[in-house]
Amino acid sequence: MTAPVQLTDVRKVYGTGPGAVTALDGVSYGFAEGSFTAVMGPSGSGKSTLLHCAAGLDSPSAGEVHLAGTALRGLGETALTELRRQHVSFVFQAFNLMPALTVRQNVVLPLTLAGQRPDKAWVNEVIQRVGLAERTGHRPGELSGGQQQRVAIARALAGRAAITFADEPTGALDTQTAGDVLALLRELDQTVVMVTHDPVAASYADTVVFLVDGRIVSRMPAPTASSVAAELAQLSRLKVSR
């Protein structure tokens, strides 16, 4: 059975000629159904590029990506958008909130656009879990950066998508809220792919995949914050010594 997110020999090269930069160099990996995977590595290792290619937001230079059982190669933008709308949610560093809408309206917006009826009980629970129960009527301009990030996370979780891609989802959050959000991600019956630089955040994942120079160099099941930090330190020394 094909994994919900499957990369096969994926390469991504930016530019041409002597100035070309290889961001991904033959990555093959399947993110299993219901798994929570953290993607880590030194700066410039290709983490965000992997996430963007896996989510169909960027096209690989070579190789194949399957998302929710569908091969992405050759799909037009309309088909890609529909595929993501049906199966995928995102949490990115840019919050992309609608300034004229309230917290609750922002959280249910993807469902509204898709013509789906929100599950009110679940929406209320998600908003509660990210610590925004007292802020549902506020607009983004009335919230701090951390609170806006919580809205973005609640929006991603409200639709119960089969797959969630998250790029540094807890970077703007305090320690307590970050822990609550990561615990919620762990509990969800969905496939989560999270890029992070934080060993504590990575310790909530089932598995950590480590990238160096666009290649997967190791993976760590059942990670702890200390074991992840040690691996990152070793990989950084390797990168510097090359």
Rank of each mutant, 00 (worst) to 15 (best):
G41M: 08
P42T: 15
P42Q: 15
S43A: 06
G44P: 14
S45G: 13
G46T: 10
G46W: 04
T49R: 01
L51D: 01
A54W: 00
A55Q: 11
A55T: 05
A55Y: 14
L57M: 15
P60N: 13
A62T: 05
A62E: 08
A62N: 03
H66F: 03
H66A: 08
H66E: 08
H66Q: 11
L67Y: 00
A68C: 04
A68L: 01
G69K: 07
T70P: 14
A71L: 15
A71C: 12
A71K: 15
L72N: 13
R73H: 15
L75S: 10
G76D: 15
E77A: 15
T78Y: 05
T78Q: 12
A79V: 05
A79P: 00
T81A: 06
L83E: 12
R84F: 04
R84K: 09
R85W: 02
Q86E: 05
Q86A: 01
H87Q: 13
V88E: 01
F90K: 01
V91H: 01
F92D: 14
Q93V: 13
Q93F: 12
F95T: 13
F95M: 08
N96Q: 07
L97D: 03
L97W: 00
L97Y: 00
M98D: 09
P99L: 09
L101A: 09
V103K: 03
V103M: 09
R104I: 12
N106L: 14
P110I: 02
P110V: 02
L111I: 04
L111D: 14
T112G: 05
L113Q: 10
A114N: 09
A114R: 05
A114Y: 06
A114V: 11
G115Y: 06
G115W: 11
R117W: 06
R117D: 07
R117Y: 04
P118I: 07
P118F: 10
P118N: 13
D119W: 03
K120S: 15
A121M: 03
W122G: 01
V123G: 03
V123R: 08
V126C: 00
V126Q: 01
Q128F: 15
R129Q: 14
L132N: 02
A133D: 04
E134L: 06
G137N: 13
H138N: 13
H138I: 05
H138Q: 11
R139N: 10
R139D: 06
P140W: 01
P140Y: 00
G141I: 04
L143R: 00
G145W: 00
